[in-house]
Design a binder for these strands. Structure first.
Lengths: 156, 156
DNA sequence: TCGAGAAAGTTCCTTCAAGGAACTGACCGT
DNA sequence: ACGGTCAGTTCCTTGAAGGAACTTTCTCGA
């Protein structure tokens, strides 16, 4: 955990960072998403310290993003995405899309996504939930919502 | 910076984290996006240590996400989003969308987004770039791309 | 012309998190 | 009863974050 808590800011980005903003957390979620569900698998795949992995998994379970489910009479557990956690995966896809575009270089994207509905390899395309047109940074105005802190300028 | 470098992993999520994964970086980008462009503004708004803010801004400029532009004969600078940085904002919108849905509670979203094209308050909706249908976690298969590390199982 | 002021950092010290290796505990199969 | 495996926990070292004070550079007002 970074020393400063983001949880209490009136900003959904900050609150989200409080759940998955610690180092390794997005990579843990990625691994769980693609089917790695056990402590040893995650540790070996990521090369993360066992101590930190245990801390991160504990936090993610506590936040309701992962579920820790026993799969044996011995103390053996699968970590699985909850609905809340599954809903985070599209954020990972958007992150990956940015990395593919700006950081992958000559080699091209390390992974591709095939869309079930159309069967094609495709990328995620952010659209407006109301009209369906593209919704990028320059396509929106930001305004204070009902949960804005009173008197504080709008901030995320 | 977290101690372990994510840069060299064959994973676009990890590489993206190497650019904006340090504590505070997404919040700095959010602030720049909504128009805060100066060191003092950012420091006051975020409550971040001046030392860490200077480090983060330096990293973001070095990575090409922000531009540091003088606005005076004195040593005074505006920090502005580059095209690369502007392209990150949709990731912030997706993060905010998740926080709005899962963490905002009774109070509701701290900020709202009005879409220019239709004039309505709306949220970002991830769609398939090929067919336009929704593209969530369960709507895709992950497969190795051209940039996958040889012999390594696909990972992001 | 002198001093106050403001922006943008830099320095320095303390505290706490990450890395990493070794250790522990529960239960299985033989 | 015993070695093996998974899932952690403990402990020590290193380095990053917090935070306050200090520095630099130029402007402007008295």
């Amino acid at each position: 955990m970074q020393r400063t808590q983001f949880r209490d800011m009136a900003c959904s980005i900050a609150r989200t960072l409080d759940v998955i903003g610690e180092p390794w957390s997005p990579l843990i979620l990625r691994d769980v998403w693609v089917g790695m569900s056990r402590f040893e698998q995650l540790q070996a795949d990521l090369g993360i310290s066992r101590k930190v992995l245990a801390e991160r998994l504990g936090h993610l379970v506590e936040q309701g993003v992962l579920e820790r489910r026993p799969y044996d009479a011995r103390p053996r557990f699968d970590y699985l995405l909850t609905e809340k956690g599954t809903d985070l995966v599209e954020m990972l896809m958007v992150m990956a899309r940015w990395g593919d575009r700006w950081l992958a270089g000559e080699a091209g994207p390390p992974v591709l996504y095939r869309h079930h509905a159309c069967g094609q390899v495709a990328v995620v395309d952010p659209r407006c939930s109301h009209c369906g047109e593209p919704m990028h940074a320059d396509d929106v105005d930001v305004l204070p919502g009902p949960g804005a802190a009173a008197g504080v300028p709008a901030a995320g």
